[in-house]
Structures are given as C-alpha cells and as structure tokens.
Nucleic acid binder design. Structure first.
Lengths: 203, 203
DNA sequence: AGTAGAAAACGACATGTGTTTTCTAAGTTA
DNA sequence: TAACTTAGAAAACACATGTCGTTTTCTACT
C-alpha cells in the first residue's frame, strides 16, 4: 500500500521513488506511455518489480506523481505564488502551463495513439494548478470555502483545457497572445466575490 | 483495429457493441471499473474475448464510448441545442452534467480507489459538452475558428471541473444553485466576441 | 552502539492481456 | 437464390500484472 508522497523521512523511500520516476521519464522519451510496462520501469530503475507496488498502485499512479511533481517544481522555480488577486501570478501560471505542455509532450515520443495517457496528464496538471490557486484564494479569503473550491477547480480546468486546445492546433499562436485570452476566461473564477453581485444572466 | 462508431450499417457490429457497452454498464453497478476485466465484460456480453479487440483497443476505449454516447444521448433527450448565445441552453447543459455525475457515479459502486477511471470519465464528458458548444458557436460565427475552439474547450472543461468539484463535496448545494455560479464562470468563454474588446487586465 | 521496526529484494503464482490462426455462420450484393 | 464478403467463435501463444510470503538490509530511536 503506497504511502503519501509528502514528508517522507526515510532516504530509501525517496531514493526508490526518485529512481522510478526518473526511469519513467527517461523511457517516455523513447516510446509512448502505453508501450511502457512496469517491468521496463523497474529494470531501468534497477529496482525489483514487486518494490514498485510498495510505492504505486500502478503505472498510472507513477505518471500522476511524476507530472504533478514536475509541474509543481516548475511553478516553484519561477517563484509563482498566487496571492488571490494579482493577475501577474495568473499570467505566470498560464505561461508555465504552456511551457509544460510544449516540453513534456513534444518529447514524449510522437502522439499517443490512444489510451488513458492524455486525460491523466491533464488531470495531474489541473490538480497542480488547482492547489496553487486554492492556496492563494484562501489567504485572501474573499469567499466561502465551497465557492473557492469550485472556482479554483473551474479555473484550473479552464487553463488546462484552453492550453491543451491551443497546443493541439497546427499553427498555434505565440503563447504570449494566448495568455490574455485565457486570463479573461478565468477572471470571473479568480474573483468569486463578484459572483453573487452582478445579475448577468436571466433565463 | 476498431472502426469508427458513426455510420455503422452492419447490424452485427451494432449488436456486438451494444452488448459490450451494456455489459460494462451492468458490471459497473457491481464493482469498480478497475476490478473489471475484459474477460468479465465479454462473458457478460456473451461475446468472444478476441471479438472485443475488433471493436475497442482496451477497456478504457469502451468506457470512453459508453460515457460519450450516454451523455450525448442525455443532452439529446433534453433537446439541448446550443445556438451560440442563449443562456437557457448553457443552463441545460450544466444541469445535465450535474445529473449525469449524480446518476453515473453514485451507482458505480463506491469511490474508485484509483487508476485512470475518473480522468477518463471527465475527459469523455468534457468532450461531449465541447462538441455541442462548438457546433453552436460556429453557427453564430462570432469569432475565428481557433478562438472558438479554445473558448469551447475551456468552457466545457470549466463546466466539467466545476460540477466535479461540486459533486465531490459532502453536503453539496442543490444543483439549481450551482447553475448560476457556473454560468457566470463560463460566460466569457461563450462570448468570445468580447475577448479582445475590453482591456480588463494590466500587468 | 545496539536494537526494534521499516522497507527492499526475491521467487513464485494465479490471473489478465493482446494477438494470431483457423473455421463457421451470418449479412450483403447481384 | 447464389456468390461474395465479413463478423464472430474457439483455442492457443507469449507476455504483463498484481499479490504473497519470506529473507535480507537499512533507518531511526533509545
């Protein structure tokens, strides 16, 4: 049964997970995710196959951890700290998402034929964005928690969906031009205090 | 090699796929998706296991077809035809999404422990919503195609994400109260013509 | 420094996967 | 209706998956 990733003291655990994630990362540069077996991963990681299952339920869980960790690290490197209001941070988040898509999908050999790969990547990225947004929105405390959660979730999915669509387009705009478009889409989510104020819709 | 689902003449093919989808649907009322094997499905469907692979690459593809088909049918039953502007249709889409989550997740025995199940469901639902939105927005032709695609994708993900979060909450609001909240979130996506007009953001 | 408790390695096992080949039965076209 | 065409059944194959005990190794704490 896998143990939570945060606050792992034992260096062996950190080491093993590092090896597994590194192995998956490396293998994904060579072949698509659904052609990679757990065996391949554990061999490349020089770890016993059974050990894999002490840490992750399946290779999807490993992918999830890899993407979430990588994206979160990317945000951290850029000092992205969302404070609940500032559009600069929102802008940085969108740009980071663009970069992450470009980086991690162009390398991951060719287009994935099918399977559960893309949805999982997307969900992991959205979850990472969501965490950052919720953290920031809670600090500014402009709305009740349920509304914050819904708003942050919606915003994270909006960013992820928009960037995904942008990335899928043959001759896509420069990322800088996508940003204001996306920012406008998520603005209402990031300002939940206005939500109940304006009677924008009728019937 | 699977054949496209639309425009299938041969009744044998329709029958087999119907059986497979029905079997999966039925099995998911009994146990979680990741405990269901292709064998289980084909046995319940009285179809040979090899035949399964003539139609779907794996059980994830079958799930995708099931969800996409089911949700699209739900929208159609309610005569949801998005015309590109009308909030009534948007409202109906949100409500339908709520209902679909409630119906299909509460029955699917317990919470799924892990795996790629939820992301796939979500992606399939979002894709179905996206199709409806794009169809409608293209008719009204208020924006260039790339912008329509990005907007529709973002909106569909927003709806799906918000409803998912709403559904995950312990004591959730009534769906009717969620609707205006979500509508406000997706309004900018549904009105892409305003996108370049207002200088809402600076810095 | 020594020890209790943990995590890792290992081999083995039952089951599931995806594909291939051959054969039959059913649908489609003329 | 007959000839053509193709879906599906059945069985077998190599390989992957997930799980179990057991043994070994290492960490963390006294």
């Amino acid at each position: 049964m896998p143990i939570s990733d945060c606050e792992v003291r034992d260096p062996r655990i950190r080491r093993t997970r590092q090896l597994l994630q590194g192995a998956l990362k490396q293998l994904m540069d060579q072949k698509p995710f659904d052609e990679i077996s757990v065996q391949d991963i554990t061999e490349a990681a020089t770890v016993n196959r059974a050990t894999f299952y002490d840490h992750y339920n399946d290779k999807f869980a490993l992918l999830d951890a890899l993407v979430a960790g990588g994206f979160h690290k990317l945000l951290h490197e850029r000092n992205v700290i969302y404070d609940g209001t500032c559009p600069t941070a929102a802008r940085a988040i969108v740009l980071a998402t663009c970069d992450y898509f470009v980086e991690s999908r162009s390398s991951h050999s060719e287009c994935e034929r099918q399977g559960a790969f893309e949805p999982l990547m997307d969900a992991a990225i959205a979850a990472a964005i969501r965490r950052v947004l919720i953290e920031g929105m809670k600090k500014s405390g402009v709305a009740p928690e349920e509304v914050v959660n819904i708003s942050a979730t919606a915003a994270s999915w909006t960013v992820c969906g928009a960037v995904k669509e942008w990335f899928s387009q043959a001759d896509r705009l420069p990322a800088e031009e996508l940003v204001p478009l996306v920012l406008r889409l998520i603005l209402p989510s990031l300002q939940p205090e206005l939500t109940q104020a304006e009677p924008l819709l009728h019937g």
